[in-house]
């Protein structure tokens, strides 16, 4: 559906986007993830023909956006970072304008009604956009992108500045849209991308630094064997701690051991990391059996998207956050899983 080949953009001396290539298949929801200023918006602006590229090619539905911009643009619905709303107009008048602008051939009344219903702005369509809250403006922005039913939707940070309920609504709307449209959305909010997208492209400093599903990316990057183990010693006091740490350290292939907090009375958690070739779970088990200890819990630390993101964008080989505060990270991980929909909007503006 969309094919990008060796796309680059320079603003004067500043290289905003460097040699990006990717493909998006029909019906896919692709997430652009990257820190602010990574080149997400620049890439999207090039995809939609708002700005030109310095070099490279963009094919939308087989049409080159620079050779036949009108045709290529007619395949795309675009919601820019700031929705392009004429704030003096009513929603209805504005959407009618967009309908005319896009030379939409669908039956006007029915189509506009569908779009309004989908974006839940039917009750407010007589109101002047100026008087609407940010959330409603965002929905009107989405509605204008949907007019004329374009096969491709490009959404630049669609949930910025919305409250948790609105974020959930917009996300489920995007998921729904993903069934009929090809969607590209950008965000710097990790759980959002994780919740909505089939595939993720991480952009950092204008380059693609990872491309794939969250699991695939995690697999590419996982090169440590890390786990958290809860071991019950023989004396059930803090005296066990040193002994256990020492004993684990003596196992083959161990890189790092650290006793964590007391989780149950006299029982501690240990963060263990082995080198990448060794699976130490069995030898750890043997060790405990020999010493008469009990393993009460063993949890492998998978990389979360957050780790991946930090790892890639900070350019580090070790995910320090995981090493130093594994407990916090794991808890954060569970929080994300349980309430991923409504707890992360705090710092997204």
């Amino acid at each position: 559906m969309i094919e990008v080949k060796n796309l680059s953009k320079k603003y004067g001396d500043k290289q905003a986007v460097r040699n990006i290539s990717f493909k998006v298949e029909q019906g896919e929801i692709l997430g652009f993830l990257g820190p602010n200023g990574a080149g997400k918006s620049t890439t999207m602006n090039m995809l939609t023909g708002y700005i030109s590229s310095t070099s490279g090619q963009i094919l939308v539905n087989g049409t080159d956006i620079f050779e036949d911009p009108k045709k290529a643009k007619s395949f795309i619905g675009y919601l820019p970072e700031i929705p392009p709303l004429y704030i003096d107009m009513t929603i209805e008048a504005y959407l009618n304008f967009v309908y005319d602008l896009k030379k939409c051939k669908l039956p006007r009344k029915a189509h506009l009604k569908d779009v309004c219903d989908l974006c839940k702005i039917t009750d407010v369509k007589g109101r002047i956009i100026k008087n609407l809250s940010k959330g409603y403006r965002q929905r009107v922005g989405l509605a204008q992108a949907l007019i004329n039913n374009p096969p491709v939707l490009i959404l630049d940070e669609p949930t910025v500045g919305l409250d948790p309920n609105q974020i959930i609504e917009i996300r489920s709307l995007i998921k729904k849209l993903g069934k009929r449209h090809t969607v590209i959305l950008s965000s710097h909010i990790l759980p959002e991308i994780q919740a909505v997208c089939d595939r993720i492209i991480i952009i950092n400093k204008g380059e693609v630094s990872a491309d794939g599903t969250a699991d695939e990316i995690a697999k590419q990057l996982t090169n440590e064997h890390k786990m958290t183990v809860r071991i019950e010693g023989t004396s059930k006091t803090s005296a066990d701690k040193d002994e256990i740490v020492k004993a684990i350290k003596s196992l083959k292939g161990i890189k790092y051991v650290r006793a964590d907090m007391e989780r149950e009375k006299g029982i501690y958690d240990y963060d263990v990391e082995a080198d990448e070739k060794t699976d130490i779970r069995r030898s750890l088990n043997d060790l405990c059996r020999q010493k008469g200890w009990n393993i009460l819990m063993l949890q492998l630390s998978d990389l979360t998207l957050e780790d991946i993101f930090l790892k890639i964008t900070m350019g580090e080989n070790d995910v320090k956050v995981s090493e130093e505060k594994p407990r916090i990270r794991v808890e954060l991980n569970t929080v994300q899983k349980d309430t991923a929909e409504d707890d992360e909007n705090g710092g997204n503006d």
């Binding site: 602006n45 939609t48 023909g49 708002y50 911009p69 009108k70 045709k71 643009k73 007619s74 795309i76 675009y78 820019p80 700031i82 392009p84 709303l85 004429y86 704030i87 967009v98 602008l101 896009k102 030379k103 204008q144």
Partner: peptide, 14 residues
């Protein structure tokens, strides 16, 4: 100023 030009320039119009 209002970035509405983005809507016009990405619409299928010349």
């Amino acid at each position: 100023k209002n970035k509405t030009d983005q809507g016009l320039l990405t619409a299928p119009v010349g």
